[in-house]
Design a protein around this nucleic acid. Structure first.
Lengths: 153, 153
DNA sequence: CACAATTAATTTGTATACGATTAAATTTTA
DNA sequence: TAAAATTTAATCGTATACAAATTAATTGTG
């Protein structure tokens, strides 16, 4: 029992979460390569497969990504022909983003990816449920504490 | 019930894990700024606080980080005066890394960080244990599957 | 209405990440 | 033992991430 125990790698909770995130994403990579997407681009596409049209601000809020990350990413998706980027008519500050036909079609090609990843993660339904709820609990707790320090944007 | 349900954001397991990792790291950032470290640099320092001396290869294996990530990072830590980098006498291919006095001393200054993060994560001991074990289970499953496809390095 | 404050996206700068390639040292093998 | 294969770091190219600063548009206010 050492006063520095709390600084040992095996006692960290964030470290394995960080590894887990990276390693799962690494498993996505070859699958996503086939449809010419990176993991973050895939998340963005999933968002638009559900809402069809939105703006950068709402997208960023949902994905918890800054506009400085999303702006170049969206330009790449536009270049690939999956989305359109246009300024809003009613408020020129807003960027309206919507899927192209090709972007909509991409969903069919992605349909098998979740189950393939699920096989690799290989948890029971009950474990998945537990993990999911605990991860969300942490996420909410960590985000909630934002209000203590600086103001939420 | 939609055939595309599996592609909905709310049904993803990796997405909240990825968010969780990023958001916790975001909470680390102001604390680590005080001792002039980034999160990844902090992980590396934790490794060396335990082993005192090692080489790039073993470090990378433990942290699951590539030499292409670690080489520039270690150069920064060297520049900050926390570590020394030297080629091994017995095998010039190996890079031997050890803490400087200043690197060793940094541990005292980091001692309060884990509990501060713990407060923000704010889970019961039992929840932490469950989450930890499930995350590790996923991590092992995902890594294990490496052997199916391409050879493990 | 004019000007200050706010909002939203972009740009800039720094720091990971990682696959692929390269370069140097060591080990294996013909 | 000399050439081939392997091992290990480092380098290169691409893609996030994010804080801070900038720019442009809109809103609030005296």
């Amino acid at each position: 029992m050492d006063k520095y125990d709390s600084l040992k790698l095996k006692n960290q909770l964030c470290f394995p979460i960080y590894l887990c995130s990276k390693e799962i994403i690494r498993k996505y990579t070859p699958l996503l390569n086939e449809i010419n997407l990176t993991y973050t681009q895939y998340i963005v596409m999933m968002y638009f497969w559900e809402v069809e049209e939105s703006n950068l601000k709402d997208l960023g809020k949902t994905l918890m990504l800054d506009s400085s990350t999303l702006t170049p990413l969206l330009k790449k998706l536009e270049l690939k022909g999956y989305i359109e980027r246009n300024r809003s008519f009613t408020d020129e500050r807003n960027l309206v983003i919507k899927l192209t036909k090709e972007g909509i079609n991409l969903r069919c090609k992605a349909i098998d990816i979740p189950s393939k990843i699920g096989k690799r993660i290989n948890l029971s339904d009950s474990d998945i449920k537990t993990l999911y709820s605990l991860i969300y609990k942490v996420l909410l707790n960590v985000k909630e504490n934002d209000y203590e320090g600086k103001r939420d944007k």
